[in-house]
Design a protein around this nucleic acid. Structure first.
Lengths: 235, 235
DNA sequence: ACAGTATTTATCCAACGGGTTAATTTCTCG
DNA sequence: CGAGAAATTAACCCGTTGGATAAATACTGT
């Protein structure tokens, strides 16, 4: 009995616990929305007791807001890492689209969270000074790129950077966020590798063609990346 | 007491009841999603007893699916009414964008329902033979328009109609579906009249510029409809 | 080693929410 | 006009769920 080395029933790890809780919450909210999310499932997936959520973060809505803020924080951080200054304008735009597209693919929860927040009419976001203070560098990046493009003659016209930003995001977002229903409607898997590649090529071609006035190879190639529609009745 | 002309407590109206239930359900599901929707609220807003939902339609999920199918049915019907045959290609494309844009504006519940269904990974849509059999005429319309455009020389290149369809829908969908969060991020109301007009002009200009190679007035005009970004830090 | 605090576990509960059962009223048609 | 079917109301049931309370265990500094 002297050897009875005291065996721990559990260890303290507040930081780790908090991280696991927020990660589990992110997955849960992304998968089921705010109303559909279950506090017990979050706790279980975090390997925690339900009480921990309230101890470390707060109630369900606090948890949700924290997740949402974290999601914005993350994308803003990655956006800042993208420097388009040294690229010539068309390449910069392509890089921008490529980044947006792949960020969305790598972080599907982000798309789901945005949809959930929009279902709530941005009720939480409005109260978050944190998010409102996190400005995306993209609009300014686009503005300078477009200006440079117009000066160099690469681009024919000036475009409102906000509109262009929303357009690029929209081209990527809609395809991915709605891939489930679109895949059913069109009767083909829009998320498989070839389909994704084809989509990226199309988006880049579309935007660059509009800006430069010259059609790039991909946009023009009829056969390229299966730009042809399959011979059937889609919707 | 002989005069006691029997006063009715309620009247029978199965068809009307069914319609009111489905309408109330559409609003409820659009406003709160599948998990957030409340059966009692649907009943109340339909001016009915909760039992009526189960009597006329079925359980919550049946109700949801019926609403979803109805939404697809409606847009398909309106789509068929749009004939692009007699327009020359650029005008046809503009008409297409205009229709899509305004349909989404007139039917915001449709956007919300699609988001809800995608959150559910299209689980219900997959089981709906009804929706799968309703083919949108748009892809075929686009195909012929693009072909005509290429032949006439209006368009420089052939584009996959499916990609173009998704792009047009995406440009409209994202802006409207995410207007709540975007409005907060950009610090301005994206749904007010001027903003909507500006957006429509931008989308038409973007797509037509890409297809025709010529920049239209709106796309080029720097001042037009406030294409200029406001002088501040958005996002 | 021990007192005090931080962290975690173990239960509990009241309200909510989907769905059901049973009674009531209206309508139809012979 | 009256009986049976259709439509609707009223009341109830019961598992789920967010949240709270209380007790236990692990750390930390002295």
């Amino acid at each position: 009995m002297a050897k009875a080395k005291r065996v721990l029933k559990w260890q303290r790890d507040p930081e780790g616990m908090r991280i696991r809780i927020l990660e589990a919450a992110k997955q849960e909210f992304a998968a089921h929305g705010l109303a559909g999310a279950r506090v017990d499932r979050i706790a279980a997936n975090a390997g925690a007791n339900k009480r921990m959520l309230y101890y470390h973060v707060g109630n369900k809505e606090d948890l949700y807001l924290e997740v949402l803020e974290g999601a914005y924080e993350q994308i803003r951080a990655e956006e800042r890492g993208l420097d388009l200054e040294h690229l010539d304008p068309p390449e910069a735009i392509e890089r921008l689209i490529d980044f947006t597209w792949n960020y969305f693919i790598r972080n599907p929860e982000f798309l789901a969270l945005l949809n959930t927040e929009n279902l709530a009419k941005a009720r939480h976001l409005k109260r978050s000074t944190k998010v409102k203070s996190m400005h995306s560098p993209f609009v300014e990046m686009i503005r300078t790129v477009v200006n440079r493009g117009v000066e160099s003659g690469d681009f024919r016209v000036a475009v409102d950077p906000v509109q262009l930003y929303i357009s690029i995001a929209g081209l990527c977002f809609f395809y991915l966020s709605n891939s489930a229903t679109l895949s059913v409607i069109f009767g083909r898997d829009l998320l498989k590798k070839e389909a994704r590649d084809e989509r990226l090529a199309h988006m880049v071609a579309l935007v660059l063609a509009a800006l430069t006035g010259k059609s790039t190879a991909d946009f023009g190639k009829v056969k390229a990346a299966g730009l042809r529609a399959p011979a059937h009745q889609p919707v």
